[in-house]
């Protein structure tokens, strides 16, 4: 947390991220990683100042197993699934609790944007799919994501690499939101290979006459496996 002192009157010097390039000034300039490791772990104060936040939909991907309907009637199936979405950041390390700069980031973002920041989020739920005959039901999950950019301001009580103040500009991180996840149910007709993998005893259901009020889709009713 930020510490204020009326006794602190320093002749400050500043280095921005553009200067903190390890190769060019290896002896006189810390790396970004070195600076962030010092956040609340050797600094008088370490503050993250956000400058922008955007929301976007993460990549849609399948979760849970397929629901294969090898029968001639609609089939309801319950599928339990769990999906963990992690975050990323501009310095390419996995943020854990030991990194205080991650905590400063979370606090600042949550206070500013009234959106909880998490570096990892897990969705666990059970969905029931209704899959038409000779079809495959699938569940797709697209996590809602947020990206925040800003600057770290670090103040050292004693000079660090010759300066009291250091800034890490243009730090950005992407992380999952814990709300508004998009879950999509999708069904498609089985491929020939998939139909061949259906249990024989079930596949003979072409003789079965459905008594459900909802008839199978006409196109699918006609697509009984050839040769049975």
């Amino acid at each position: 947390m930020r510490i204020r002192s009326t006794l602190t009157f320093v002749v400050a010097a500043v280095a921005a991220l553009g200067i903190v390039t390890p190769a060019a000034h290896a002896d006189s300039t810390p790396t970004v990683r070195e600076l962030l490791d010092k956040c609340d772990n050797g600094t008088d104060s370490c503050v993250f100042h956000p400058s922008s936040r955007t929301e976007f939909g993460g990549a849609r991907h399948q979760v849970g197993r397929n629901a294969n309907n090898c029968s001639t009637v609609n089939q309801n199936e319950s599928i339990a699934w769990s999906d963990t979405t992690g975050g990323s950041n501009s310095i390419g390390i996995t943020i854990t609790a030991e990194y205080k700069f991650g905590e400063e980031f979370s606090v600042a973002v949550s206070a500013t944007y009234e959106h909880t920041w998490t570096w990892s989020h897990t969705v666990t739920r059970t969905d029931t799919l209704t899959t038409p005959p000779w079809s495959v039901g699938q569940i797709f999950h697209a996590p809602q994501m947020q990206r925040v950019t800003g600057t770290y301001e670090l103040h050292f009580g004693k000079k660090f690499y010759g300066h009291y103040y250091w800034y890490v500009n243009n730090f950005s991180a992407t992380g999952p939101e814990d709300t508004d996840d998009a879950v999509t149910f999708f069904t498609r007709a089985m491929t020939g290979d998939e139909r061949n993998r259906c249990p024989k005893s079930v596949s003979t259901a072409k003789e079965f006459v459905s008594t459900e009020s909802t008839p199978a889709q006409p196109a699918l009713v006609a697509s009984v496996r050839p040769g049975d």
Binding site: V11, V14, H49, S51, S52, T112, Y113
Partner: peptide
């Protein structure tokens, strides 16, 4: 874009047109 400070100054404040640090600064 937000510029890096490249002299020996210290940033003492930043103000914005919009809420949540939006717009021009």
């Amino acid at each position: 874009r937000l510029a890096a400070v490249t002299n020996n100054d210290v940033i003492i404040g930043r103000v914005f047109d919009d809420q949540n640090y939006g717009g021009s600064s």
